[in-house]
Amino acid sequence: MFKILKSLSKSLGSSAKATEAKPAAAKEGTLLDKVSKVSAAAAKAEPPKSPEEMCGITPKMSKDEVKAQLKLLFRRYNRSASSLDAKLRNEADRMLDAIVQMREKHFGEI
């Protein structure tokens, strides 16, 4: 596996002048922006999901797999709860509730 630097600039004329680090707002139109917009649009069209679906927990998963998945999701959405992106912060709260429900269902109450 190797990494390729994401670079959107194809010619000098279409890019911003070289300057110091710019704010997050400058990312409009980047690949990330497009990815995020597609995800948001897809999410809008979907019907409400169950906590299992939200957490990607399937009946075939072993206890260890469920535990690993919930830990991964908690790390992701707990961090997202402090994101600079307000939409992501809102999504994080719903996800954290679903993660807790799944933990209680599979591993019992604390």
């Binding site: 890019s15 997050a24 790390r75």
Partner: peptide, 25 residues
């Protein structure tokens, strides 16, 4: 002609779940 480096803050591999806090060109 221009290398653009987005500077991220966050642990997730998924780009959606990190903050882009700057860009260097």
């Amino acid at each position: 002609r221009v290398i653009e480096v987005d500077i991220t803050q966050g642990e997730d591999e998924d780009a959606k779940f990190v903050d882009v806090i700057g860009r260097l060109t």
